Amino acid sequence: MSNEYVKRKVALKDIQPCLICNKPSTTVLFNGDNNNGGGADWFYVCDIHLQDNIQFVVPVYSKEYENEVIHLRQLKQKITSTAAIKNGNWDGWVTKLFAKGTKSSTKTDNIEADSAIDADNEDKGTKGQDTKAPADLSALQREYDETLDRITKLQKNNKTYQLSDTFYQSRLERKKQQEKLAARRKQLQESYTNTDPDELLSKFAFPSVPKTS
């Protein structure tokens, strides 16, 4: 059984106690992995126990979520650097540009600055991008907010979880016990079914009806 559980909702008529706090809950963590033929595993749990509870479960997010998080970090770095430039920290930025060299001493200062920007972008493999500095801070902030909203939505709609090692091992042990009991019941049933009725009659003496005089 793999350590991957999916959150599901059941009807109110099927409500049962939470595994953690015993309060009634309609949320079920379901594991349908039946590779070993031992049947599915599930248990009821309150939604609040699925939030920031690494000792119980951790969410398993999609690739889309991971990409959005990376994009958010990149936007944060751009916003930080752009804000620093707009606040007057131009010296280090200009020095870096002109360290690449200028093409001609007869050109104006503006042309020299543009050439230095192009050289820097060529080194990074991004020629033609971000040639205007500082970038539009409001546009970056708007994109950051939109990305954050998408991340929040993906978090809210996540339905896949992994149990902590302790809980997962307890579920495995419980499943093994259930499989043993099921095998035992099956063995007893087969033993009873295969018994010859005549053999049963010879082993047991059934009481007879008393004779009346």
Rank of each mutant, 00 (worst) to 15 (best):
R171I: 10
L72T: 00
Y61G: 01
N87T: 07
N22D: 15
K63V: 08
K175T: 12
I85F: 11
S115P: 00
K13D: 14
R171Y: 03
C18H: 10
N53L: 01
V28H: 00
R73H: 08
I85C: 08
I117V: 15
I54N: 13
V10K: 02
L172N: 06
K127P: 02
Q189W: 07
S105D: 14
T26L: 06
A139Q: 12
A182C: 04
D91G: 08
Q141H: 03
L29H: 00
T131I: 08
N22H: 08
E173W: 07
S164Y: 07
T126F: 05
E122F: 10
F56D: 00
P210S: 05
S62Y: 04
V69F: 01
T166R: 08
G101F: 02
L148A: 15
A40G: 05
D118G: 04
F206R: 07
G125K: 06
D149C: 02
I48C: 06
G39Q: 11
L97Q: 06
D120C: 06
T95L: 10
K96T: 10
S104N: 15
L29G: 02
V60K: 08
V94W: 04
G88W: 03
I48S: 05
Q16H: 14
G128H: 05
L12A: 13
E179D: 12
P17Y: 05
G128A: 04
K13L: 08
Q16L: 11
D136G: 02
Q162N: 12
K96S: 14
E146T: 07
K78E: 15
Y168L: 02
R171K: 13
K78W: 09
K76E: 14
N22Y: 11
K103T: 11
Q189C: 03
E68S: 06
Q51H: 11
V10D: 03
K100R: 11
T160A: 09
S202E: 11
S213M: 07
K156T: 12
S138Q: 06
E143F: 04
Y168I: 01
D109G: 12
I151E: 01
A40E: 12
K186A: 15
I151S: 01
K159I: 10
T102G: 04
F206D: 04
I111A: 13
Y61A: 05
N67C: 05
Y161K: 01
T80M: 10
R171S: 08
F56G: 02
W93Q: 12
T27N: 13
T126M: 13
D91T: 15
S81A: 13
D149I: 04
K86T: 07
K9W: 08
G92L: 04
S81F: 07
S170M: 10
